[in-house]
Simulated assay, not measured.
Amino acid sequence: MTERRVNRGRRRFLVGATGVMGAVGAMGAAVPFVASWQPSARALAAGAPVRVDIAKLAPGQQVTVAWRGRPVWLVHRTPAMIERTRGFDPDRLRDPESRTPQQPPYADGPLRAIKPEIGVLVGICTHLGCSPVYRPEPGQPAFGSDWPGGYFCPCHGSKFDLAGRVFTNVPAPLNLEVPPHRYERDSVVVIGEDPEVADG
């Protein structure tokens, strides 16, 4: 009698343990399967689009987001910033008309933007890949009394205006890159997609 009870107890234990192990195995298989639905780090690094809500971006402010592992700046330019950028002396800029294609064709003109008030720039200096700093205030003594506001690279002294156009006589050879982008709504910018994607 005792031997039979022990066997039944052992059987219950083995059946229960097998059920628990089966459940653990099913969970182990389900987690990677569900995770496979999410974009991989490789896909994100390859350029999955990034949506940015700029509704709370105040005039004069800048926000930084990551796209393709690089910083992308979105700056809300004030009317005064726009006027200074448009009116800046083109002789002080290496490529004032942005003839070297560092931007998509829909982001042309002196402001290099779809909307004049919103600048979208890759925040990497075109010299050796440092990240410039945002210095929007005009006339800063460190940059000269005619400084219109813009970006300064602390690594080797390159300067860019608020449209990312590079100054003359600095190490950086090119304007800052303008990434592909479009407006999903007035307050949402999609970095990494051209406007034609939405239209097509």
Rank of each mutant, 00 (worst) to 15 (best):
G119T: 11
P104C: 09
P90A: 10
P39H: 09
C130I: 06
G200W: 09
R77K: 12
Q62I: 12
L162A: 10
F88A: 07
N169D: 15
A142T: 12
P154D: 12
E117L: 00
F143D: 06
I114C: 03
P132V: 09
L44R: 13
Q140L: 07
C125T: 08
L44E: 13
V20T: 15
H76F: 02
E83C: 04
P79E: 03
D194N: 10
S131W: 01
G144L: 05
R135V: 06
P132S: 08
A107C: 14
P180H: 09
D161H: 02
K159N: 12
G69E: 07
C155E: 10
L128R: 10
I54F: 01
L111A: 06
A55M: 05
H156W: 10
V52W: 06
V197K: 12
P136T: 04
N169E: 15
Y106M: 02
L174W: 13
V50M: 00
K159T: 13
E177S: 06
P110G: 10
A41T: 01
T2N: 14
V120L: 06
G192Q: 03
I82F: 08
R12V: 15
T78M: 03
E184C: 00
L176T: 04
R42Q: 15
V170H: 06
Q102I: 08
G192V: 07
M27L: 14
L44K: 12
R8S: 10
Q61H: 12
G139E: 01
P171C: 08
A29N: 00
P148V: 02
C155V: 07
G22T: 13
A80H: 00
R10E: 06
D186F: 00
I54M: 02
V170T: 10
P32E: 08
L162W: 05
R94E: 08
Q62F: 02
R8W: 12
G150M: 02
P171G: 03
E193C: 01
M27R: 11
G123K: 02
V166G: 08
A23K: 04
R5V: 11
E193Y: 05
T168G: 08
A172L: 09
P173R: 14
W73C: 03
K56L: 04
R5Q: 13
P32M: 05
R94I: 01
A46I: 01
P138M: 03
W67S: 02
T64C: 00
P101N: 10
V24P: 02
D194A: 15
G9N: 12
V65E: 01
S40A: 05
G19P: 04
G69D: 04
V34S: 04
T18D: 01
P195W: 10
H76M: 01
P116Q: 11
P154A: 11
C155I: 09
R165E: 04
A55V: 10
K159W: 04
P105C: 03
G149Q: 07
A23L: 14
R42M: 09
